[in-house]
Write a protein that binds this DNA or RNA. Sequence first.
DNA 1: TCTTGACCTTCCAGCGACTGGAAGCCCTAT
DNA 2: ATAGGGCTTCCAGTCGCTGGAAGGTCAAGA
Lengths: 140, 140
Amino acid sequence: MSNGIISIGEAASCSGVPPKTIRYYEEIGLIAPAARLENRYRAYDETDVQTLRFIQRARSLGFSLKEVGELLALYRDRRRHARDVKRLALAHVTELDGKIAELTAIRNTIADLAQRCRGDRRPECPILDELETRATDGGA
Amino acid sequence: MSNGIISIGEAASCSGVPPKTIRYYEEIGLIAPAARLENRYRAYDETDVQTLRFIQRARSLGFSLKEVGELLALYRDRRRHARDVKRLALAHVTELDGKIAELTAIRNTIADLAQRCRGDRRPECPILDELETRATDGGA
DNA sequence: TCTTGACCTTCCAGCGACTGGAAGCCCTAT
DNA sequence: ATAGGGCTTCCAGTCGCTGGAAGGTCAAGA
């Protein structure tokens, strides 16, 4: 088509969001139901693609779909307060810090155990010993 | 009961694995079907509880159920090679390192963006600007 | 004795965020 | 005419549980 109207496949390659995922986002109400051509195919314009790209970027920064929905609402609200966006972002940073700390603690526990394991053909292994007897304190 | 046979609820509180989860582990074949009392209640002994505790600890170290199954097989195999356990553990460490690096990159991107956001009542916000226009390069 | 309440049993559904596949329609090119 | 590619819908599966419904079992209390 020579006008700005494109199919779901084209919208997918323009935005980086796969067709299945676009339909899924529509189904759960993250994006509005797409306009349809006469043959019932979904039709997208440049604005739709921009929204999809916005979503794709927010997702790749680890925001949940719920958070993406909030960001999208803020994005579209000309009267928004930057404060609200910042609050969301900082909450996400806090959450990430927690996850990183948790994973790091686990990582170090296992790396330490593995380092103490001789890793030869004999059955003795401090990793299995730890799993057998020790209380786990590596939790968040 | 005065002998060593306990119910699923007791096995749960001894091992830290909830009853529902124990049944689930049985269902997917991670643990063998439990013995039953005459009233069809599941019955556990000290060995079962030890297995459950082993699983609980491995899970809390972030191993997947598939990996836990492998660790359990190794644990029960007296002819195991420590090498195999170590290989599993090191693969897990590598995986964790990847995840930590990914989350850290994302965290820093967002923290940086948030720091540049004034966070007042005005609508201008570099976070939304970034989501609108920039390519995301924070991926793994 | 009856009833309450805490257990236990099974089965089914849902979470998040997709992803795969089946069955079938639409359109273009050969 | 047919082959292919892309589109449509709907259902199922992923992972690791978790919640709830409907019902069986048991010990203690009124």
